[in-house]
């Protein structure tokens, strides 16, 4: 494991996190940190426990045990509402959109804008949605139709727009570009760099090793619920990361023949 070079307090410090589903240890004693302005990629094979790990941070799933420190202070995160209190926003792998309502309603779901009489201010929400979307996916124009009638990529844009709108300090992105075309993906890439420059900490879950190397500062590799290791991007090669993902071997441990096996 690489040594921590940064001295400041981490934005997020998760210690010894554990989640089990029946007999399956989905997250098994995981430690991970995230610093301001940093992108930490979480990678691993299917079922490695990536989604479950970040769900404990976003409040979608309560951890069985473990400690979460936000800015050095212990944080009780048991519901999505708790997480939002800490300015944690999440783009879920499943997108978490109500398909029967429109994009602005989804973006503001649970945090609706109200008029001074306490009524839903749909026009204000639409206006805000249009301006966020203008940054993200300027071609998006379907603001008044149910999300059901949007394409997969458009839905993903809605989910991203929601996370971006609320001035997150900590952003969790679970496969944010899985359904996006090349143009939209590059827009999201740009967005991530922009948010990073603003000092936001980002957990990025991705299966695309190229994206990971483009965007991440550190790469955390999970396998069967355990953290194989967290490495600085500048200190490893793609092959070494692949060896971690597939064989669970750290850069020093993987032999030349292991690496060659990867390319078979």
């Amino acid at each position: 494991m690489t040594t921590e070079t940064k001295q400041e307090t981490p934005l997020v410090d998760m210690r010894d996190m554990r989640v089990a589903f029946g007999g399956v240890h989905a997250v098994d004693g995981v430690n991970i940190t995230l610093f301001p302005g940093e992108v930490v990629a979480v990678v691993g094979g299917n079922g490695a426990g990536k989604t479950t790990l970040i769900k404990t941070l976003s409040g979608a799933h309560k951890a069985d045990s473990g400690t979460i420190l936000i800015n050095g202070e212990p944080a009780q995160i048991e519901t999505p509402r708790d997480a939002k209190q800490y300015a944690i926003e999440t783009i879920y792998q499943t997108l978490a959109l109500a398909e029967n309502i429109d994009a602005p309603s989804n973006m503001f779901l649970g945090r609706e804008l109200k008029t001074r009489f306490g009524l839903l201010d749909d026009s204000a929400m639409e206006s805000a949605a249009r301006s966020v979307m203008g940054r993200l996916n300027p071609k998006f124009q379907n603001f008044k139709v149910p999300v059901k009638s949007l394409s997969g990529g458009q839905r993903q844009s809605v989910a991203i727009a929601r996370a971006v709108h609320f001035n997150a300090k900590i952003l969790i992105m679970d496969e944010p570009t899985a359904a996006l075309g090349p143009l939209e993906t590059s827009q999201v890439t740009e967005l991530i760099q922009q948010l990073k420059a603003e000092g936001i900490g980002i957990f990025l879950i991705s299966h695309d090793i190229h994206d990971v190397f483009d965007l991440a500062d550190r790469i955390a590799v999970m396998m069967q619920g355990k953290m194989v290791g967290i490495v600085n991007k500048t200190e490893v090669t793609k092959d070494e990361v692949l060896a971690m993902i597939i064989m669970g071997k750290l850069p020093g441990e993987a032999t030349q023949s292991d690496i060659e096996h990867l390319h078979d």
Binding site: T94, A96, A98, N106, L109, G110, R111, K114, G118
Partner: peptide, 25 residues
């Protein structure tokens, strides 16, 4: 059903209960 948040939540729950829960409803 159209102008207050309760109505919006009712429809959101019907559309995707999990999304409604994750939205903090």
């Amino acid at each position: 059903s159209t102008r207050v948040s309760f109505g919006r939540y009712v429809f959101a729950i019907g559309g995707n209960p999990e999304a409604a829960e994750l939205g903090g409803i």
